[in-house]
Amino acid sequence: MSTLPSKKGIFTASVLQNRGLGDKFFRLSLELEKKANTLFSSASAGQFVEIDVSQLALPTEKLIPEKLWDSSQRNVLLRRPFSFADIDSSNDCTIVEILYCVLGPATLRMKTLKTGDAVNLIGPLGNGFAIPEDKKSVILVAGGMGAPPLIHLAKVLKKQHQDMTITAFVGAKTKNDLAFFDIKTDKLKKKTDITLQEFAKHNIKTCISTDDGSAGFKGFVTESLKNRLGENKPAGEETIIYACGPEAMLSATAVLSSEFRIPCQVSLERRMACGIGLCQSCAVKCRDKTSGTLYKLCCKDGPVFWSDEVVWE
């Protein structure tokens, strides 16, 4: 993506809501301090913030899942990166939505955030999805916890590129792991037939896959995508794929991108200490025309990359 350095800053935000979505998924709405408005109103889908959770307390013992008893005892020092799930900028007020899953000591602490609490964050960071003007058709591929930036992108595309046709492919382990979405079940149909409101409200046709078949197609999201691409053979010059999810899913999507000659942008995840290009820890192995391979930084050069520039391992 573009390598122009973007402006960023350290800001304080106030928690508007920190709502549980199922037992381990949460939606965090943050209202940013006014001086962040200009920077965040021009931020794009696929960019992220680094949140300081080091000052937050643990939940009471009985609210800590057994699997996290050990790791929750660790101190948290480093900030944690989160993609935007939405940015709402209006009337001099910027609200940022973060969707997160409680997986370790940092997100466990975030669970305790209450309305009115102050949060310190750095952003907007990295380069988001680039939207070429000549595309008529967009395919979103979201796997598991990779859904948030694509939910954001869907909204942006619908607002700014009304004439684009968007199809979403959403995969998760089970129906319960689709908790980032507002799920509607049509009672007349089978209980595996569900609708994801975040896409449905924009009239985005959505194909769901789950590993266990508890919702939609039973299998990987990339199998479902491959079937569809095989049937429809979309024109590569008019179509673009945007994907975010586990690395194996992104790698399989990259293969489909080259097989069907459809350009594809992927949003990657790496362990980051800083998020601003200082620590060099979030290396992504990329192709280089002259020297074979080189490492780019997920935080600064990404997190969105063209799928054919990444060396998939």
Partner: peptide, 11 residues
Amino acid sequence: VPRIVETDSGM
């Protein structure tokens, strides 16, 4: 990668 890992009060 991984090139970093967080530890108690350090990395």
